[in-house]
Amino acid sequence: MARERELSEDRSQERQQKTLSLRISDVLHDRLERVRDVLSVKAGSRVTTSEVAKHLLESADEERLELVELMQKPTDALLMIREKHAQGVRLSKNEWTCIAYYAHRGMEWFTGGHSNILPDSYIAVVKAFLAVYDILPDSDTRHQDYYFGNLADSEFTAKRPITSDVVLKAAAHCIHKVETAKKPYRPLYVGRNLYHALDSENITDTTALNEALAPFWKALWRLAARGHYRVCSLPLRAPKAAGGEHYEEESFLPPVSESVPDGDFSLSFSTLDNTDLSILFVFPGTRGAMYPLSRYPMIAAFRAMLFGICDDSEMQHWDGEMFYAYTSRNGDEIDVSFRAKDNGITFGFSSREWAAVKRLFAKAWNSPEVSRTWDKLVEEYGEL
C-alpha cells in the first residue's frame, strides 16, 4: 500500500513555491518518520514530514543516508556498534552519532518525575562533548549559542556573542555544579550538545574522533541503552538463534539476609533463562510476606525508591513509575510505607526496619555474584 505526501520546496531565486507530489511506500514513510524524530530534537520543535523530505533532498549524501539506515533498526544497529567496539574496530562518525542520539534520549527520560542517572554519567557526557569540541576544525562554530544554552543555568550568564571560551567556562561550571550541589543537579539537555556536534559539525578525522570518545564509551553506552529502552521497550540483547545453545530455566545465586529484632529480612536471587534477574524479598516472622521483584526494570525501580526516600523526614514521598512510597509519623518515630502501582498492596516499616532493608540491598549488591549479574543487565537496559 502506498501513501501520498506533498513535498514543498521554496526556491528563493525564483520567488515562487513549487509543490512536488510523490507516492511513497509504507517503508519509506516510516523511515521519514524516524528522521523527523531526529530532526525535531535538533530544532527544538516538531518538524513536518515535508520539511524532513526537503532536508534530505537538499543534503542527500552517502553519510546522511548511512545514519538514516542506522536509525531505521536501532536494536540491530546498536548491537552491531557494540560488537565492533568490543573487537577494537574503529567506529564511524555516524555510529558515534547513533550512540549520542540514544544517549540524549535516555538522559531526557524521567520515570515518574525521577531520573536515576548517576552524576558521573552527566559529567562523562559533558566531557565527551568537550573532547569532540576540541577537535572541531572551526573553534568559532556558528552553534556556540546552542551549546551554551544547553550547558548554562541561571547562575551562569554571559554577554553576547557567545565565544568558544564562554562555552568552555559554561561546561566547567556545569561539571562543578553536578559534583558539588547539595541536591542532585541534573543538566537535562547536555546530551543534545554531543549529538548536535557529531551530527552537524564538519568532523572528518575519524581516528581523532575515536580517540576523543573512547574514554567515555561505558557511560555513553549505558545512557544509549537507557534511551533505546525508552524508545523500543527492549533490552539491548541479541536474540537466541533457533536451535542454538540451551539455557537452564533458572539458576540461583547465594541468598542474603539482614537481622532485625523479630527475625531476618532476606533476599533470594534467581536468574531467568540466564538473561535476567528475579528476587524474592522475604519479610521476618513465621508468617512473613514474600514479595517478588522480577526483571531488571522492576528491581531498578524498587532500588531507586528504596534509596531515594529517607527515613528521617515526616513529609516525604516518592512517586516513581512503578512504586509509590511515603513517610508518616508514629509517635516519636517515622514510618515508611510503599506500594506497587500495579496492585496497590502496601507494606509498612519502622525507621529501623527501613534502614535494615537498605543495608540488606547494599550488602546484596556488594556480593560478587549479584554485582556481576547486575552489571551485565545495566549494559543491556541502561541506567533505569
Rank of each mutant, 00 (worst) to 15 (best):
A171I: 10
A171N: 01
A172H: 07
A172W: 04
C174M: 12
I175M: 09
I175P: 03
I175T: 05
K177Y: 03
K177N: 11
E179L: 11
E179K: 08
T180Q: 13
K182H: 02
K183E: 15
P184S: 01
Y185E: 02
Y185W: 15
Y189W: 14
Y189L: 15
Y189I: 03
V190Y: 03
G191K: 07
L194Q: 01
H196Y: 06
H196R: 06
L198Q: 00
D199S: 12
D199M: 00
E201T: 00
N202H: 09
N202I: 01
I203Q: 07
I203A: 06
D205H: 01
T206Y: 11
T206K: 00
T206E: 15
T206V: 12
T207K: 07
T207S: 02
T207V: 15
A208D: 05
A208S: 01
N210W: 00
N210Y: 00
A212T: 04
L213Y: 07
A214V: 03
K218Y: 07
A219R: 00
L220S: 05
W221V: 14
R222V: 14
A224I: 05
A224W: 08
A224H: 13
G227P: 13
V231F: 09
V231C: 03
C232D: 02
C232E: 13
S233A: 15
S233N: 09
L234I: 02
P235S: 03
A238Q: 12
P239D: 13
A242F: 10
E248S: 15
E249D: 12
E249F: 04
E250T: 12
S251R: 07
L253A: 05
S257W: 05
E258N: 04
V260Y: 15
P261K: 01
D262A: 00
D262L: 08
D262S: 09
F265E: 00
F265Y: 13
S266G: 11
S266H: 10
S266K: 04
L267G: 08
S268L: 10
S268A: 11
S270K: 15
S270V: 14
S270R: 15
L272G: 08
N274L: 08
T275G: 08
L277P: 04
L277T: 03
S278T: 01
S278Q: 05
I279R: 01
I279L: 14
L280V: 08
L280I: 09
V282T: 11
F283Q: 13
P284S: 02
G285E: 06
T286F: 10
R287A: 07
G288R: 04
G288P: 09
A289K: 14
A289Q: 12
A289L: 09
Y291R: 10
Y291E: 14
L293S: 12
R295A: 10
Y296R: 02
I299G: 13
I299Q: 02
A300W: 10
A300P: 04
A301I: 11
A301L: 05
F302V: 04
A304G: 12
L306Y: 07
G308P: 07
C310V: 10
D311W: 08
D311N: 12
D312M: 03
D312R: 13
D312Q: 13
D312G: 05
S313G: 03
E314F: 03
E314C: 06
M315Y: 14
Q316S: 14
Q316M: 15
